[in-house]
Nucleic acid binder design. Structure first.
Lengths: 338, 338
DNA sequence: ATCACCTATACATACGTATTCAGAAGGGAC
DNA sequence: GTCCCTTCTGAATACGTATGTATAGGTGAT
């Protein structure tokens, strides 16, 4: 392995000492402008880059953040949640802007992730992404806090007081989606998703749904609610279950785009068209605009979410006490709702 | 920042010296089994993890690989290429299995990415992902080679001799897709994509397309070829161009799923159904199975591709001279081709 | 019993940076 | 001209690991 130039090489070329190089490059005010200029020129000439390992070792930090995806289904080659994937690009980008690197990891909830990262000094802080059972990883969150590890979670903000979270305004999203369907004259709006507190995000969307109905003086009808996960298959099966039940419905609000698309497929399979049955999803994944008909959905802004996660985490690392953040959502109307 | 235990702490607890701890943990044969067991127990007890910075500094390597995405459109908040995103999960996973970390970065082709990574010792090697103009970054590849940086590229293997590549069998994919359409009785198969050598992958698919036609004693007809990029809009526009041209066609082979879906939308907009016009795409992105009708496509296996990239790169890092690899593709027949 | 030899461990050191502390050079006030 | 103060730079050192070299303890042969 050929070795690059060190700060000593720069020092020699610039005619100063190594510490001066370090100071000059890190912007210390105690270096004169003339010296700094010479050092920068020398560094440029030799293509010098600070050695991250040495720097990290000395300052006891890595200037790296870790993203941990939780995805129980991954062993079977399943895809990561599209929403998280769409966060990835913006996260990387914003991280770079803030002077941090981003390390990605995919974990099973059951593994020992909670000790892996800070322990090996790979990352200064952790971003946790994952649907999945909130309850199940609660004890591990407590351990993280006990160790003083900095972390931010994507999820529901109001349900628990553990750790800092960034989330979309799920309640408002559910409200907007439902209000939109009501404004189209729909009255029998099925809800595909779960009101299980293990998935606080879905629960909030359900609450928003109920709130919108009540605002229109309609009492939520449990027979219009089908418990379902967020996958295409589950969305399809949820709709089939609804049909078996025999409950009439003229619209569907699904807690994820993928489930909404699954429901549309099931509808089309039995000859009920969309938007005769109006459909609204949640997330605005790339496939939403590619479906037929294109899906009306509640968009979460991935860039904004990514930046909020990064900013919040960095604030925590640098000693602040960042508040939870709830990000606005935006109803994106396409053809599936008429 | 609370500091974790060091190898000295383990040494004290196990009653040995620090070097012995290091050797025991790295599996050196010159440590007796009894000692190794004691060390491991002590390490376990204190939740000891090797400090990556110190270890990397000492051994002059990071045990980290970097993935560089190239995406010119990203500044506008566009999405990363779905195919690359689907590589990400499997790459992270396989990296972990091989004992490496994965660092993600998104770059503009124009930036100085070629000096950033190895220079700062952040990564032992680089994986380059990106459609985009191969010609444009050729000089930078040459610089990478000159510096002795290890890297692997995703792309076309046969077009250039620069660097090691891993690619799908694009030619065979084009052949299979076209043969499939021919077997369905189609004779006027439009090709949406580009035969520009700046995109060697598309060129190879075009060649496979021609090969299949000739095998059926049909001479490729240039008026059936529309130059197009891989986006939904470009696919739609390509089809509109084809219609303006007035050339008859009964099938479409598009070089990307997204373009294929765009073409389907354009078809549906003018009332020509799918699969009356049969459509085949390329990539098998998640949205392919969600479209209406579900899209027949040439699937590239993301897991296999990811593992090939990682394995090839690690082989290069560890001193080998890995060969280029061409991965098999698989035609996935769905409803869009009849 | 002496020596050679092998095994298992300890000692010393290097990796490249950032920081504390001390000191040199220069300027102003008396 | 002396003294002090400010501004800048250099010397020394610590971060935690891995490894080359030295050494202790044991075994077997002569």
């Amino acid at each position: 392995m050929q070795r690059g130039p060190t700060s000593f090489d720069i020092a020699a070329l610039a005619g100063v000492s190594q510490p001066t190089v370090s100071r000059a490059l890190s912007g210390s005010p105690s270096v004169s402008e003339a010296t700094r200029a010479r050092v920068l020129a020398a560094a440029e000439e030799l293509h010098y880059k600070v050695n991250k390992n040495a720097s990290g070792l000395r300052r006891q930090q890595s200037r790296t953040l870790a993203v941990l995806f939780f995805d129980e289904e991954l062993p079977e080659g399943a895809e990561l949640n599209p929403l998280y994937l769409s966060l990835l690009g913006p996260m990387v980008k914003h991280c770079a802007e803030c002077g941090y690197d981003l390390l990605i990891s995919i974990q099973q909830l059951s593994s020992d992730w909670h000790v892996d990262y800070e322990d090996s000094r790979k990352a200064d802080g952790i971003i946790l992404l994952g649907y999945g059972d909130y309850i199940e990883y609660l004890p591990k969150l407590e351990k993280l806090i006990a160790r003083g590890t900095h972390f931010v979670r994507w999820g529901s903000g109001d349900e628990s007081q553990i750790g800092t979270t960034v989330s979309s305004d799920n309640d408002q999203g559910g409200f907007d989606a439902t209000s939109h369907l009501l404004s189209k004259g729909r009255r029998k709006i099925a809800f595909i998703g779960s009101a299980d507190p293990g998935c606080p995000e879905f629960l909030e969307r359900w609450r928003g749904y109920c709130r919108a109905l009540r605002a229109a003086r309609i009492e939520p009808d449990d027979s219009l609610r089908v418990d379902s996960g967020p996958s295409e298959r589950e969305g399809r099966e949820a709709l089939e279950k609804l049909l078996e039940r025999g409950t009439e419905f003229d619209a569907i609000f699904a807690v994820s785009d993928v489930a909404a698309i699954g429901a549309m497929h099931a509808l089309q399979a039995i000859g009920r068209g969309v938007p005769e049955v109006a459909v609204v999803g949640f997330d605005d994944i790339p496939a939403a605009s590619l479906s037929s008909p294109p899906l009306t959905t509640v968009a979460q802004d991935p860039r904004q979410a990514a930046e909020a996660l990064i900013d919040t985490l960095i604030m925590a690392i640098e000693g602040g006490s960042p508040p939870n953040r709830v990000l606005p959502v935006k109803l994106t109307v396409r053809q599936s709702s008429g």
